[in-house]
Design a protein around this nucleic acid. Structure first.
Lengths: 233, 233
DNA sequence: GGCGGCACGCTTGCATACTAGGTGCGCGAC
DNA sequence: GTCGCGCACCTAGTATGCAAGCGTGCCGCC
């Protein structure tokens, strides 16, 4: 029996090597929930579906295991990690630590060009909100936080946070279809932005920490709505 | 011409898969400086030296590239990253952010058993100091910080910091042969420990941040002593 | 009918073969 | 003598083949 449609596809043939494209495609499908937690993944299936050999698929899966969003069991199979409350807490801790440290620096050294770029991202989020475009909103949310870390001079903070974020990001994604959260998040972004523009590290940190913790407030309801996506523990 | 002795060896055959053992062996040799910055590594050479095939070597190298301590240039070769001042600053930032956040939690929730374990590590460091055993001191230093993060309930902080730490850890290692630093570091560990024992998060954070920044104070002299290990920038 | 055991098929882990591309060296022309 | 071109070797990237282990289902036996 052929497996159900995996709904994964490689990006443009031009950019990056095969391994990177496979990683990107898989990660995107995983955090978007198209490859649901608990699902079994086979290197052979993925390789066939993507039209490449097992080698790049395998290397991408190893990297995704480092991200803790897949589990590889030797001689048995590879599985999409169920969302673990403990792992969500870890990811939240890491993200708070890194982003809050970054924003303190950003508040001190941010320039006009960077502020403008941040404001444009928030404006674009307004548009996405109005259009009800969840996916675009989600991308812009990431872009906002990435730009924030970039402004601190340590862009590495974002790339690290993102990689440690596997469990948390799936919760965020599941929480998006609640429209009122989108408006709330935009308001919080504005608050953060104002504090940075005022070059006030303390206020910026407080605002960001509050913003980052919002997602946790919906965790329980998400778990109630999708118990099958969560680890029993 | 056969390559010079690579001075790398796999650990016990029992523990972990081949990939993990290759990664551990390479990382250890890299941070210890036996594979010096700028050196060219060949997948073929490494595979032959370790008695395994290219596949696990390759997967280990990809992971080390994520750690930023090797650079893989397609169709050309793999090289040990030279120490980059920018990368050291990034690593320092990440480590400060994660460990300082962790120690605040640790100061609040640490128990007697954990305190005792930490004190024992410091005591062992005294022994290593007295014996002039740099390698053992280095291992114990890692153990101290790992135990600190573990006590926070987010052991993930240490594993992340360690992986982001590639450039910084090489500087630390180069700085160790200066005996007075060992005594100073032990004293700082004690200060940190006292603050935790007193359940004082603010004081603990201050002490740890000061401790973490000590390594930076020797950066310039290290760079002066080993200019060939550093990136020209 | 229920239970024990064997065998098959599937999985990942590791090894090997092949491809494409880049570097550097050597030869030839000017 | 010097510059330019081309070939040969070496690299990582990818594909494929082989080995070992676990789960499952079927079949025989009790």
């Amino acid at each position: 029996m052929p497996p159900p449609d995996l709904r994964i596809a490689l990006t443009d043939r031009a950019r990056g090597g095969t391994r990177q494209r496979v990683y990107d495609a898989l990660r995107e499908a995983l955090v978007a929930g198209r490859l649901e937690p608990g699902r079994r993944l086979s290197e052979n299936e993925l390789a066939e579906a993507l039209g490449v050999s097992r080698t790049p698929v395998r290397e991408a899966l190893v990297r995704l295991r480092d991200d803790r969003i897949v589990e590889i069991v030797p001689q048995l199979g590879t599985f999409v990690s169920k969302i673990s409350i403990g792992a969500v807490a870890d990811a939240q801790f890491v993200r708070e630590a890194l982003e809050c440290a970054a924003i303190r620096l950003a508040a001190e050294r941010v320039g006009d060009a960077e502020l403008l770029a941040l404001r444009e991202i928030v404006a674009a989020q307004e548009d996405a909100h109005a259009a009800g475009d969840f996916d675009r909103f989600f991308v812009l949310d990431d872009a906002f936080h990435a730009a924030l870390c970039e402004a601190s001079g340590h862009g590495i903070a974002w790339s690290l946070a993102q990689r440690a974020d596997g469990h948390l990001v799936r919760v965020r994604r599941l929480s998006l279809p609640v429209p009122e959260y989108m408006g709330e998040m935009i308001a919080e972004h504005r608050t953060v932005l104002d504090a940075i523009a005022a070059h006030d590290p303390d206020q910026a940190e407080v605002a960001l920490r509050h913003h980052l913790r919002m997602v946790l407030s919906v965790l329980e309801s998400i778990q109630a709505d999708h118990p099958e996506f969560f680890e029993k523990e």
